[in-house]
Design a protein around this nucleic acid. Structure first.
Lengths: 164, 164
DNA sequence: TCTGCTAAGTTCGCTCGTTGAACCCACTTC
DNA sequence: GAAGTGGGTTCAACGAGCGAACTTAGCAGA
């Protein structure tokens, strides 16, 4: 009776949920983006249980979001580096940042942290737009549908039985 | 020894993680966006355990993302409707959709689902941009920093002891 | 009246995942 | 030779997720 897995479901949200539904995982990625690369640094700054952090880093490596690289021998020590897939994940964190900033503080309070441009000092507010038009997504007309290229018979939810 | 809570941490990513780190929650929101409002519809289309779904819907209502509304009396039956906060959450799902589409299928395969405009039929590809410039976020210069307006002494991680 | 159906849950016993604390090991430095 | 460092592993306790069965209030048909 383990936790239901979503990582083979035909929906991109489901597969992403499977990843970030692991407790601590988005925060581990956040630390990676702030430049932390070493086990003890990440562990100390999050105060996460060491065993959990080990499991999360392993999963993120298996997924190809981080890479475990030896930065010295004798004794061998490893650090974790963002791969292109990991770097691309910043967009998801940015959307979470924006929504969290807008909605997760009680009225009258503001989040004590912002995103800034290091050079100009400007506050950066991420938004999600349609790549083609540059406009915000229109919830009234957007729809989730079958890809024109895919012929896989599919519903958004339970995975079709995995190939045997 | 319950799961470490992030919902009082001073970081927007942490608070959002606390919410969507609950297994099934983003998928419940996805169903809400496809127009599903009733317990049994959501349950059937996700095939989620009923007890878990009850807990998730309760949390989402407590957070103000869904609203539980009676749609008939005798017998009284409830449905769940997206609130403005819930509607705004679409941006997070869209970012997950895009990243999942780009990175969670093996090379050569493509996700069987896409986002489309209902009217034009165009495929929609969400991107995260800087609201001010309309350009994609530049990872090399972006920084997480203290808000200019906030004087709360703060690190991104462990919450300051909650006010007593 | 009796049976069955519907919608929206609740209950229960079973596992699995998370937690905190302690321990481990290969080196290096004092 | 004692202590420190970095990157883990081990363990018991407990909470969360699982599937299946049960509940409750009303309606509909025989």
């Amino acid at each position: 009776m383990r936790r239901t897995r979503f990582d083979e479901w035909p929906c991109p949200i489901a597969r992403t949920t499977d990843l970030i539904g692991d407790w601590w995982t988005p925060l581990v990625m956040r630390e990676a983006f702030t430049g932390k690369r070493r086990f003890d640094d990440i562990q100390a700054s999050l105060d996460a249980p060491r065993a959990v952090l080990t499991a999360r880093l392993k999963r993120l490596c298996d997924e190809g979001m981080l890479e475990r690289v030896a930065y010295q021998d004798r004794p061998v020590r490893y650090e974790y580096r963002l791969t292109p897939k990991g770097l691309a994940f910043w967009d998801v964190l940015a959307a979470m940042w924006r929504w969290g900033s807008d909605w997760m503080w009680p009225a009258g309070e503001e989040p004590p942290m912002v995103l800034k441009d290091r050079e100009s000092g400007e506050v950066i507010r991420p938004v999600v737009v349609d790549e083609r038009t540059g406009e915000r997504l229109n919830l009234r007309t957007i729809r989730m549908g079958r890809s024109p290229h895919s012929s896989t018979p599919t519903t958004p939810s339970p995975a079709p039985a995995p190939a045997d």
